[in-house]
């Protein structure tokens, strides 16, 4: 199985990122009834949803900005980013603050918040339980997925956060939206 994973990892046709998700600790969360997971190394903190300031002239996936202890952090609506319409804000809605590399050679990392319906737990995922992402059928862009983890008999989608929150791509999107 690991052989299979390595093979498909090397094939850029399937995944844009050169490697498949590694084993380790993941934070699972719910979004639109689906369970997703993010590697915890990228996650800075989880906060309650609130006090969001909307920014005009932005695509739907950029909800606005929040004040995170004195710095202004953009908040991305992950549901909208997956092209499934905007998230409904509910009692358990939270914002996961994720650190992403800013892309084009900028040394500074950019913090971005993502809106999720509910945060579940931190789980250990074994290498053996990670399957390569399928090329279709998940309902979201294949390059957003870095693997599928089997857990309690169901699949958890491991997100490739650098692709999902690619600042360059979202900037291009919002430029297009503004024109």
């Amino acid at each position: 199985m690991s052989e299979l994973a390595a093979n498909s990892g090397n094939s850029p046709a399937v995944v844009a990122s050169p490697e498949i998700a590694a084993a380790g600790q993941y934070l699972t969360f719910v979004l639109g009834g689906e369970v997703y997971a993010l590697g915890i190394l990228n996650i800075k903190e989880i906060i309650d949803y609130g006090d969001l300031t909307e920014v005009p002239m932005m695509p739907a996936c950029v909800r606005g900005v929040i004040n995170l202890r004195g710095s202004v952090v953009p908040v991305v609506d992950l549901f909208a980013r997956f092209g499934k319409g905007s998230s409904k804000i509910a009692k358990r809605t939270g914002i996961i603050i994720v650190e992403t590399s800013a892309g084009d050679g900028d040394s500074a990392n950019q913090d971005i918040g993502i809106i999720v319906d509910a945060v579940n737990e931190v789980v250990d995922i074994d290498r053996r339980d990670i399957e390569p992402p399928p090329s279709f059928g998940t309902g979201i862009r294949p390059d957003f997925i870095s693997g599928m983890a089997k857990r309690n008999g169901r699949f958890v989608i491991l997100l490739n956060i650098d692709r999902v929150l690619s600042v360059d791509e979202m900037t291009r999107l919002s430029q297009a939206a503004a024109v």
Binding site: V55, P56, V65, V72, D106, T171, Q175
Partner: peptide, 13 residues
């Protein structure tokens, strides 16, 4: 506070 790179193109802000 400067807005991040995401918002550089926004006119009027």
């Amino acid at each position: 506070k400067p807005l991040g790179k995401l918002f550089t193109h926004i006119k009027g802000v």
